[in-house]
Design a protein around this nucleic acid. Structure first.
Lengths: 184, 184
DNA sequence: AAATTTATGTCAGTCATGTTGACATATCTT
DNA sequence: AAGATATGTCAACATGACTGACATAAATTT
């Protein structure tokens, strides 16, 4: 009854992309396949965390802040703004809640006392780890039948999808590009 | 001057994931690497379209609607609701604009005259193709140095990241799962 | 020492996009 | 004829973005 004639009109013939080693579309054609897979994959990927967050009265914005603060301890407010690419007013709102509810703490910078270095509290760490666990489960499941070369290709692909002009502190850490102050 | 001590405290030692064939984290560890790569990759991926859309006074919501209507001509409103996972009130707002501005047209269903089948107009097709072109450029760039097996792994990974319980019409089309009415 | 710049915070208003709940209409199914 | 379904719409609200203006403290420059 709920039926529709799925004509796939303008969709170009890259529809056979389901079998083993799929030939990509011919040169110059659009990657509708990857475009749509990215949409659905990301939707379900963030969906894992969304559900958990609801129970805490938090949203995706809180997750992103907590995630990067936990992963890169001592991140400055300005660094976070670069990473998240939002305005300080937007960040201020969620950061205030996370500070008030003791998921994150601020420490005044040693060298520059204007800076507020951010750190996750144990409470914050626990939540981030829980959310990362859910997402890791999905990733692990998705990688189960992929060999090491395949995993390398996936990692390379995702890296190559990221803009590298004007990289922020976190991207520099991920890519290890040039001017890092190194460390231990 | 704008410097920070990037201690990478809690970050587990999967930090060497830059070299060729990267060993994944040990069993039970979290995939911080993929989690963060997905975040940045998707951010920049949708960023391509965002810029273009601004010039048209549209947002991501409009893009998603136009994309799926173009790709799956004759999509019903209910199908679109399933795919986008939003309420009809939310969809109604953007759909109304796209209809008013002649990017999409409605045709009454043949069998069921209650249905409004959606189709992209030439104007709509042009915009969708333009946006897909931008995103395809990024994808093509990212796949440039990936061999066919690698591309297959990437495709398999993205597919496996998607929830398959209660798949909508579009997902059924993408995965070719079971009850399709087939045709031509 | 004074002036300027930087890092951060905050107030106020707006916009895009999501939500719930209620209800209307046309059409199909029973 | 009654009920279910597909769609549309009104109203109110929440979240998370935005711009613009302004305040404070601390560092840097002159």
């Amino acid at each position: 009854m709920t039926d529709i004639n799925f004509s796939r009109g303008p969709a170009t013939p890259d529809s056979q992309a389901a079998s083993g080693t799929t030939p990509g579309p011919r040169a110059g054609e659009l990657r509708w396949d990857i475009i749509e897979l990215l949409f659905f994959a990301y939707r379900d990927f963030v969906g894992d965390a969304d559900q958990e967050l609801e129970a805490f009265g938090f949203g995706r914005a809180h997750h992103r802040v907590m995630h990067f603060v936990y992963r890169y301890p001592g991140l400055k407010v300005a660094d976070l703004l670069d990473v998240l690419r939002i305005t300080k007013q937007s960040l201020g709102r969620v950061l205030k809640q996370l500070l008030d509810e003791d998921y994150i703490i601020q420490k005044t910078g040693n060298n520059d006392r204007r800076q507020r270095l951010l750190y996750a509290t144990p409470k914050g760490e626990a939540l981030v780890a829980k959310l990362a666990g859910l997402q890791t489960d999905r990733i692990t499941r998705a990688l189960r039948d992929v060999n090491p070369e395949g995993v390398a290709a996936i990692s390379q692909f995702l890296r190559a999808m990221i803009d590298r002009d004007d990289p922020d502190k976190v991207l520099e850490a991920i890519f290890g590009t040039g001017t890092r102050k190194s460390k231990e």
